[in-house]
Simulated assay, not measured.
Amino acid sequence: MTSHQPPLWRRAVAEMLGTALLVCIVVGSGIAAQQLSPNDVGLQLLQNSTATVLGLTVLILMFGPVSGAHFNPVVSLADWLLGRRSRTGLTLAELGTYVVAQMVGGIGGSVLANAMFEVGTSISAKDRATAGTLLGEVVATAGLVLLIFSLAATRRGILAAPAVGAYIGAAYWFTSSTSFANPAVTVGRIFSDTFAGIAPSSVPGFVLAQLVGAAVGVGLLVLLFPAASRMADDVVVPHPSQKDGS
């Protein structure tokens, strides 16, 4: 059977670049906001969230046709898990490759943002982990997973770019954690001691909360959309689904 699936190395490059640019947008706009509005944290968050909404939407449109534009280990993990019964979605080897690419991209994006603004790359001292922010990460991640996979299950994946961008933008404000909802972004933000940074000590709690949130999202998805597992190849956006063995 002829396949149009891009080879794994190309998809990995797309995931690395997409995640790097996403973190670069988050960190870079955070630095810019801090410089432009040094005395107004609310305005800083508005500037940071607006840039993230617009940037994430563009990145999904740009890289989605190549890799599906996951840019997020919990999305890739859910994709692998949901696809096991129907033999769709990522294989275990592809999952590992995606996650490594996303993590490398996340760190690289933070370093790039620091360099553009001539801010030294240093480990963040910004502690974020509290009971409230960890609950916020559970909520943010569960909603993100449910949104992405419900769109695929109902064949509306073409709407993922604006929908995911809108959700993350809203979650900046309605969650106490400002919605990291992504282990790769969380790890990347360690390397910028700026508005968008997070202290290493807060990261394990955030990642655990994100994994719990992903499990909640998958559970709700299976309850509400039983056929979701058959559409794992259309996550985050529809892309070629035939495996080519590359």
Rank of each mutant, 00 (worst) to 15 (best):
M16C: 13
F63A: 04
V203R: 02
V207T: 01
V23G: 01
G42D: 09
A228Y: 04
V138K: 13
V235A: 10
L159S: 12
P6I: 02
A209F: 02
V100K: 05
A12C: 15
S49N: 12
L54T: 12
T50K: 09
Q35I: 09
V164T: 14
D233L: 01
V138P: 12
A78F: 08
L147D: 06
E118V: 06
L61I: 00
S202V: 04
M62K: 03
V119G: 01
V74M: 14
L151P: 09
G136W: 11
L92N: 00
V75W: 05
L211G: 06
A181H: 10
F191E: 03
A181I: 12
V41T: 11
G64E: 07
A20Y: 01
A184Y: 02
P238N: 08
G143F: 13
R84D: 01
S37H: 15
V41Q: 11
A209E: 00
T178F: 15
F180V: 14
S177E: 10
H4N: 14
F71M: 08
G157R: 12
F71K: 06
S122E: 13
L36D: 10
D234P: 04
Q34S: 14
S241M: 03
F174E: 06
V100N: 06
A142S: 15
M103W: 03
P238A: 08
P183M: 09
Q44L: 03
P7M: 00
A161G: 11
E94F: 04
G68E: 02
V212F: 06
V23K: 04
L61C: 11
N72P: 09
L56C: 07
G197D: 02
T19Y: 01
A78P: 12
R11P: 04
G96I: 10
G42M: 09
L95F: 14
S192Q: 05
M62V: 13
A163G: 12
L82P: 06
A101I: 09
V207G: 01
E137N: 10
T50I: 13
S150H: 13
V104S: 07
P240F: 02
I198W: 03
A181M: 14
S229I: 00
V139F: 12
A140D: 09
S124A: 14
P183R: 09
L144T: 14
N39A: 11
L135G: 10
L17W: 01
A115W: 10
L95D: 01
M231P: 00
V111D: 01
F180C: 11
S124G: 11
L21D: 00
F180H: 15
A166G: 13
L56D: 05
S110A: 14
G143N: 12
A160D: 08
L81K: 06
G136M: 13
L17E: 01
F63T: 07
G219P: 09
A196W: 03
T88P: 08
C24P: 00
L146W: 14
L61M: 13
L90V: 05
S37L: 13
S124P: 11
N72T: 08
V212W: 05
D193T: 06
L61S: 03
G30Y: 04
N114R: 04
V100D: 00
A115I: 02
V203L: 00
Q210V: 05
G132P: 05
T57H: 09
V237E: 04
V119R: 15
Q102A: 04
W9Y: 15
H4Y: 08
S229V: 00
Q242D: 07
A14W: 06
L221D: 04
S37Y: 14
L224F: 11
A142K: 12
G83S: 10
A140C: 13
A227W: 00
A161Q: 10
V236C: 15
R155G: 04
